[in-house]
Design a protein around this nucleic acid. Structure first.
Lengths: 147, 147
DNA sequence: GTACTTGCAAAGATTTTGCTTCCAA
DNA sequence: TTGGAAGCAAAATCTTTGCAAGTAC
């Protein structure tokens, strides 16, 4: 899966270099996404953004997320819909990873694996399918919650 | 990932053996899910069911799907939300598989792989995470749509 | 200045809930 | 007979759209 974009580059630079207009709303939202400790959904992102700019509208959050998704700068996750049907977002990193969602405590773990990379390669080769985004989510019991 | 239930057993038998009440609505919905050629969402399932029983309510479809999901008899898919935020369902089969969604033509392919089985094993071992459901979805260009 | 973006209000899409009636076991 | 299930209507949740006003470049 060749990837020309340098994913370590901050989102703002990335957007500017693509000719996307930088508004202060976008700058704020991007900053929150990049600095987030956990996976945020639109509502959580909006709530954090409002602390800095109370006039920022929820619609702007949705539109900004759609824009970032369009440019492949964020990944959209379901995290097994442990609570409601919302989507979660994370800035795309250099390496794909798997999300493990504990159905008991709700903890989300991330997991990287060369087997995963091999699996992607296998799909691309055997199906001649060009992967643009890939999402792996597992639901189950984490080590702390295992019966 | 040990799996005690015999997944080849028809859904109806499976439900009865679990003491679930069999209504004619459930029988009809299960039959459609098992015989479906493609992945159905709640609306599509309802539309097909209504051809046989015009009084069957959409809410019953949602409740039946929730029940089947609870018992682990169907898997819920997003298929990369190529069109809207709906969920798709498929009867659980003996072997997990990966869904490949073409972002150009919308075609959904399924892919089985021993690498995938190995990957699950690795997760269970290294994280001591007990996987109950796993969902792998890739979006990209299929062989017919590749530029 | 101009085209793109925002805020606001409203609508749209999908799913869930409350409650009464009905039916499978 | 009786507790669980279905139907109906209404609500809840999450997201998108139309349009006037604002703003980055």
């Amino acid at each position: 899966m060749p990837e020309s974009r340098d994913l370590r580059r901050p989102l703002e630079q990335e957007l500017i270099s693509r000719g996307v207009r930088m508004t202060h709303q976008r700058r704020l939202l991007i900053q929150i996404i990049q600095g987030a400790d956990s996976h945020l959904d639109a509502l959580a992102l909006w709530q954090r953004a409002r602390r800095q700019d109370p006039t920022l509208n929820k619609v702007t959050v949705y539109r900004t997320l759609a824009m970032l998704k369009k440019y492949g700068l964020v990944d959209e996750l379901d995290l097994m819909h442990l609570e409601g049907g919302r989507h979660y977002y994370e800035a795309r990193t250099t390496r794909d990873h798997i999300h493990l969602a504990c159905i008991k405590c709700g903890r989300i773990q991330e997991f990287e694996s060369s087997l995963f990379e091999k699996l992607k390669g296998q799909i691309e080769r055997e199906r001649r399918f060009s992967i643009k985004v890939v999402r792996v989510e597992a639901g189950g019991f984490c080590d702390r919650c295992k019966p």
